[in-house]
Structure formats: structure tokens, C-alpha cells
């Protein structure tokens, strides 16, 4: 019971810290003011769902895929309700899950190899981070595209 309670608290803090970047980046993308609250809800939902799935020891790529696919369906519902294109909600909501840190680490590793010479240790860092970036990002976009790939298949959503 206690473990469940602790997990719930962690889950809530995760959701709380996830809505902030979702709204912040939505503002950089100039999402209309009325839609910001949906971006906040979507960001909190997607990131906390991924946290939960990873807590139950799903690998990060699959957790990301499931979270972003659910976000895709949620975005589908909102988009049909408000007649607003889907990327307006979905992209800002998955921004907190983007593997930015891995991407920069891989790039910095490449620069490092150039300056200080090849070493197996740095190359390992570059490959691991680069591949992780690639797979998480693909899972993310593929998950978001699931509704239009599987259900709509080329027909317009709104």
C-alpha cells in the first residue's frame, strides 16, 4: 500500500513537471491561446504515462511509443472536436519526451573525437547516444502518426 502511495506521488510530480515544458514550447510554436490548456494536459498525460510504463520496466523506446500513440488518439479526439489540425496539440505535448540530451551528447562526442583523437570510450558514447536518439525519436513520431496511418489512411482528419 505504501509503495503504491509513493508511486502515485512520483507519478503526480512527473505530471506536474511535464506540463511546464509542453506549454513553454507550445508558446514558442505560437499555438493559439485557447489551445494551450490542451497542450498542458497532453504533455502531463503523455510524460507521466511514459514514466509509469518505464516504472513497470518497459524499455524507454516502447514506453515512448505507447505514450505518444495514446497522445495521437487523444489529439485525434480534440482535433475533431475543435476543428484544429492535430500537430497543434500533439507535437507540443510530446516535446518533454524528445531525447535532446542524448542528441547533444552524441554530437559533442563527435566534436571531441575530432579534437582529441579516436578512442573506443568516446566512440561508445557517440554510438549509444546517437542510436538511442534515433530510436526514441522514431518511436515518438511513429506513435503520433498511428491514427492517420492505421485508421484514416490518407483521408483528411478534419
Amino acid at each position: 500500500m505504501m509503495a503504491f502511495f509513493d508511486l502515485f506521488i512520483l507519478f503526480l510530480t512527473d505530471a506536474w513537471f511535464a506540463w511546464i515544458p509542453a506549454v513553454g514550447f507550445a508558446m514558442v510554436f505560437n499555438v493559439p491561446r485557447k489551445m494551450l490548456v490542451y497542450c498542458a494536459a497532453g504533455g502531463a498525460f503523455a510524460h507521466s504515462l511514459r514514466f509509469l510504463l518505464m516504472h513497470f520496466s518497459l524499455p524507454i523506446e516502447w514506453a515512448t511509443f505507447v505514450a505518444s500513440a495514446s497522445m495521437g488518439f487523444l489529439g485525434l479526439y480534440w482535433s475533431r472536436k475543435h476543428l484544429i489540425p492535430r500537430p497543434v496539440f500533439t507535437v507540443a505535448s510530446v516535446i518533454p519526451m524528445i531525447p535532446g540530451s542524448y542528441a547533444f551528447t552524441a554530437m559533442i562526442g563527435l566534436v571531441e573525437i575530432n579534437t582529441s583523437g579516436y578512442s573506443l570510450e568516446i566512440m561508445r558514447v557517440v554510438m549509444e547516444n546517437g542510436l538511442r536518439t534515433l530510436f526514441i525519436l522514431t518511436a515518438l513520431s511513429f506513435g503520433l502518426a498511428i491514427p492517420s496511418i492505421l485508421i484514416y489512411r490518407g483521408r483528411p482528419i478534419i
Binding site: F29, P87, G100, L137, S141, F142, L144
Partner: peptide, 15 residues
């Protein structure tokens, strides 16, 4: 992080 272009890139290629 260029998040929007990256997501657009993958979804464009998928479609």
C-alpha cells in the same frame, strides 16, 4: 532542441 522539425521530418518520411 529542434523538436518540431525532427518530428515533422519523421512523419513526412512515414507518409
Amino acid at each position: 532542441v529542434p523538436g518540431f522539425p525532427l518530428i515533422n521530418a519523421v512523419s513526412d518520411m512515414l507518409k
